[in-house]
């Protein structure tokens, strides 16, 4: 425990747990905001419920996975050009 207390308050386990909980609460509130705030949609898909929430999340997952896949092909040790 004493090791925990020596750490900066921001990186203690308890703080991180609190930040996760607060963050998720904020995400839920923002998504529910879609119920009360009307939005102009033009392409169909952007009119779906909580469009910006799920589209943001899925885009990021897709981008990370794609970049991982491409990385398997393109990544080299960072002294590649030094030799």
């Amino acid at each position: 425990m004493s090791e925990e207390r020596d750490k900066h308050w921001l990186v203690r386990q308890s703080t991180i747990r609190l930040l996760w909980r607060l963050g998720i609460l904020v995400l839920i509130i923002l998504t529910l905001g879609d119920l009360v705030v009307p939005r102009k949609a033009a392409f169909g898909i952007d009119g779906s419920f909580a469009f910006y929430s799920w589209f943001g999340l899925l885009s990021c997952v897709a981008l990370v996975l794609f970049s991982k896949g491409l990385g398997a092909w393109l990544k080299r040790r960072d002294d590649y050009y030094d030799g």
Partner: peptide, 24 residues
């Protein structure tokens, strides 16, 4: 909504974001 859910994606995918000593 867009930005904060992207933030969520970052921390959920953190194991995949681990840095390696590489260039592309």
């Amino acid at each position: 909504q867009l930005l904060l859910f992207s933030g969520l994606a970052f921390f959920l995918l953190l194991p995949l974001m681990k840095r390696t000593l590489t260039i592309s």
